[in-house]
Design a protein around this nucleic acid. Structure first.
Lengths: 108, 108
DNA sequence: CTCGTAGTACGATGATTGACGTACAAGCCG
DNA sequence: CGGCTTGTACGTCAATCATCGTACTACGAG
């Protein structure tokens, strides 16, 4: 039906538990870290999660519905962006501490 | 067998995903907020979660095994303490931002 | 010793979730 | 147009999770 427009929760509707739950999955955490490290933009295909496309779609959807990322179509590709502004405004310091902690975790 | 000694993960074994997962549940988040607001000590019975004892035990166990809280027996009661030092050392700022965000969330 | 309180252990159960394959839609390119 | 790439929708399956009830242990008070 050619929607091509993706629904995102309003900033005021972002729920802390949903964000934490979205971040609790290692795969989604990796996506967030990737976006945080790359200026917040990346196509779905640029982040190799090692899972099937369906599963990837599923995880991106969870992140989007939790209000963690924004997704925009650009041709056939879909660009994912971190909603850093909204997250920082709602939960100051949360994103940074999680990303920092995740980066350290990888090193260990 | 009178174990009466509870096993806690070592500080180095605390996993970010486990902590996030533990914090993602509203009930456990409430426990953490309560402990954070009360100097980090409280018996299981002091925090009314509105669920059965079994469920309460389950949630406390998840928190303990994730390395979020410490549990010590004092007579028949069990005292829960936040592992603030360990968490702050491993994931600087994480606990504060989550607790702050949760407190704000309740107000909304 | 007996009882009450505080919490554990052990299933059981229903809901949610993660992962997948297949079939399909939308946009680019030859 | 026809094929390729990119991602979605849908149904399925297994695993995990939150919740509970019941039976039990440990401790303190009387």
């Amino acid at each position: 039906m050619s929607t091509r427009v993706l629904q995102h929760p309003d900033a005021a509707e972002i729920r802390l538990e949903a964000v934490l739950h979205a971040l609790a999955d290692p795969m989604r955490l990796e996506v967030v870290c990737f976006l945080a490290a790359h200026g917040g933009e990346a196509g779905c295909a640029e982040i190799d999660l090692g899972v099937s496309k369906s599963t990837g779609t599923h995880h991106y959807r969870v992140l989007r519905e939790a209000g963690v990322i924004t997704q925009v179509y650009r041709g056939t590709a879909k660009i994912n962006s971190l909603r850093r502004d909204d997250l920082d405004a709602l939960f100051p310091g949360l994103l940074d501490s999680v990303v920092t902690a995740a980066a350290r975790r990888v090193r260990v």
